[in-house]
Write a protein that binds this DNA or RNA. Structure first.
Length: 578
RNA sequence: GCGACUGUAGUUCAAUGGAUAGAAUGGAGGUUUGCGGAACCUCUGAUCCCAGUUCGACUCUGGGCAGUCGCACCA
């Protein structure tokens, strides 16, 4: 809380002078117990050494000074061993957060931490010809939330996606595709099938190709030849199959993006990077940044304590590393100047990005320090490892479908036939997204289908339910009267209001640390606080009288607004009824 | 072999170096039709091991142990 921060800081300055105050900025820690007030500061303990005084004594001196200072934001100051200063906010000041929320609406919680910054986030990265799996889903969830969180702090965000439309996975696919056509499948008939069937068809071809590649020497050679032909675009049929496969894949991808409520300003394709990449490799060779070794062009990472990686292979083809140099140029020029480019890519690419960033920095000093790899952790199955080669993947779509079916089932059981199919999907997507976002991106996720489809407790539907419940109460309200601030809150109400006041701080922290889980756990606490309050006190027709009813309605409205804002920053939709 | 990351209730996860380590789920028991029971309340139970730094350590440092990922022509 900003005004409080200033208040405490100036108290420290008054007592111990400007030098001491400058040396230790005041930290306000939101407390987790009502006995400790709303905020605590540990400043006394930090100053103890420099002042050569007992922390508790310092705390007392600061507390005394605070009590002398006239202020309408502090209700009570207390000291506690070993040297905390505990501050309880004035109830009227605290309550003023409610009108402030109702006035600022979706802007409540926004900040200016990144005002004026232009930031690109590259996320998603599904591969055409392959299916999206639970790993991609984690990427989309984190990426979308990050975009919205950084926007909340005033940055201009550019959303990009980078998709691998060339390389061995494509060659394996095209090889099997062509073989299947030779067996009599009609291309024109295939093209008329529904998108799901066409995509499934491609997925099956990939598994065929990948299996053949491993088990059959002759097939392996043929696939290598296909790879080369795709690169050089030398075979008309293969070009056609390639184009077709990409367009089918993208059609399906866009369907999923829409469902996930995500979008991109630009979808880069690996094949687009080639010309620029070749030139960049050339330049880097001239400057001695890259060198030749065994017929390949490599970056020798040893002077920088980095790995050595290949940019151009022995056959003169660009590797993924090489193409990244082409991509970087496009990303840094297509949308004007960037302050930062965040690559939301799984942790397995650490070495890859460390090396490509170094090469880019040496080649284009302007990019130095602007490239950032947001290395979120891997998603694995609770039981064993996924392999798209072997077809043993849990697809993104199967998760969403299962969630949808189950939500539909619950809706039916609860007799809520008025819920639209779109709303059911919003709940299903919310459940899946929340299950990803409530945990740190930087921890390995052992994916458990059942857990991710939990609709109770710390889950997306719980938050959406609380929102819908609040909206339902509001729609039943009859009185409409301006609240006056003389109302005295009971503990359940004060608890909820204190949480509302903390929200902006949580959003800043989540944005700074790229950690949506802070929003998630905050919202869970807020929903709990509201539901607990709801269970104990009646809102409409409150026994305590009109004043209580008016206050509770505005509290309900504020809670609904904050739930909605928080869910938005997680990338999760709300529904009015469920 | 080298490097990075991770080890917290039975399980899945939280915790800017701060107070009595929080949730959820599971299990056990409950909630006077009062605005939505997808809710609420009670009980149950954890920081991998050993040192160190600090007023104070899940968090920082060192050493073990365990797991995941990466380390030259795949993407």
């Amino acid at each position: 809380m900003k005004p409080l921060q200033t208040l405490v800081a100036s108290a420290v300055e008054t007592v111990y002078g400007p030098d001491v105050a400058r040396g230790s900025p005041v930290q306000l820690i939101p407390t987790d117990r009502p006995e400790h007030g709303d905020y605590a500061t540990n400043i006394a303990m930090q100053l103890a050494r420099a002042l050569k005084k007992a922390p508790l004594l310092i705390a007392q001196e600061i507390a005394d000074e605070l009590q002398k200072t006239p202020s309408d934001i502090i209700k009570r100051v207390a000291v506690a061993p070993p040297g905390y200063v505990n501050i309880t906010l004035d109830d009227a000041t605290l309550m003023s957060v409610i009108p402030s929320i109702l006035n600022t609406k979706e802007a409540y919680g926004t900040g200016e931490d990144l005002k004026g910054k232009r930031i690109m986030i590259e996320f998603g990265h599904p591969n055409p010809f392959k299916v999206m799996h639970i790993g991609h889903l984690r990427n989309f969830c984190i990426g979308e939330s990050l975009v919205r969180l950084l926007e909340s702090q005033g940055a201009k965000l550019i959303r990009t996606n980078y998709q691998g439309d060339v390389g061995m996975h494509v060659a394996k696919n095209i090889w099997a595709f062509r073989k299947d056509l030779e067996k009599g499948t009609e291309l024109s008939e295939l093209s008329r099938r529904p998108i799901d069937e066409r995509v499934r068809y491609l997925g099956e071809r990939y598994v065929e190709g990948a299996t053949a590649f491993e088990e059959d020497e002759q097939a392996k050679e043929e696939i290598m030849a296909v790879n080369a032909a795709i690169y050089t675009k030398s075979d008309a049929l293969m070009n056609e199959l390639w184009q077709l496969g990409i367009s089918w894949s993208l059609e399906k991808f866009h369907e999923v993006y829409q469902r996930l409520d995500t979008r991109f300003d630009r979808e880069y394709m690996e094949s687009e990077t080639v010309d620029r990449a070749h030139k960049a490799v050339e330049q880097a060779l001239e400057k001695g940044i890259l060198t030749k070794s065994d017929g390949a062009v490599i970056f020798d990472g040893s002077p920088y304590n980095l790995d050595t990686r290949v940019f151009l292979n022995g056959k003169g083809f660009l590797t993924y590393e090489g193409k990244e140099l082409g991509l970087a140029q496009m990303e840094f020029s297509d949308f004007g100047t960037l302050d930062q480019c965040i690559h939301n890519v799984a942790v397995e690419q650490r070495s890859f990005f460390a090396v490509t960033f170094k090469v880019e920095e040496l080649l284009w000093p302007d990019m130095a320090g602007k490239q950032y790899h947001n290395a979120y952790e891997f998603v694995g199955l609770k039981s064993g490892k996924m392999s798209s080669r072997k077809g043993s993947v849990v697809t993104a779509e199967s998760i969403l479908e299962t969630a949808h079916t189950r939500i539909a089932q619950i809706v039916k059981e609860n007799g809520m036939s008025s819920i639209s199919d779109e709303d059911i999907d919003a709940i299903a997507v919310g459940a899946v997204k929340y299950s990803y976002l409530k945990m740190s991106p930087y921890k390995y996720l052992a994916f458990d289908l059942e857990a991710s489809l939990s609709f109770k407790g710390d889950a997306g539907p719980y938050l959406q339910y609380t929102y819908a419940r609040a909206k339902s109460v509001l729609s039943n309200q009859k009185v409409k009267k301006d609240g006056d601030s003389s109302y005295i809150m009971n503990p359940e109400e004060r608890n909820a209001v204190a949480l509302l006041e903390r929200f902006p701080g949580v959003v800043v922290q989540a944005a700074r640390e790229y950690s949506p889980q802070y929003i998630a756990s905050y919202l869970n606490a807020l929903a709990q606080a509201y539901n607990t309050f709801y269970a104990v006190h009646r809102i409409i027709g409150a026994k305590e009288g009109k004043e209580a009813e008016v206050f509770r309605l505005s509290l309900t409205s504020a809670i609904a607004q904050v739930l909605r804002n928080g869910l938005y920053w997680l990338g999760i939709p709300t529904v009015e009824k469920m």
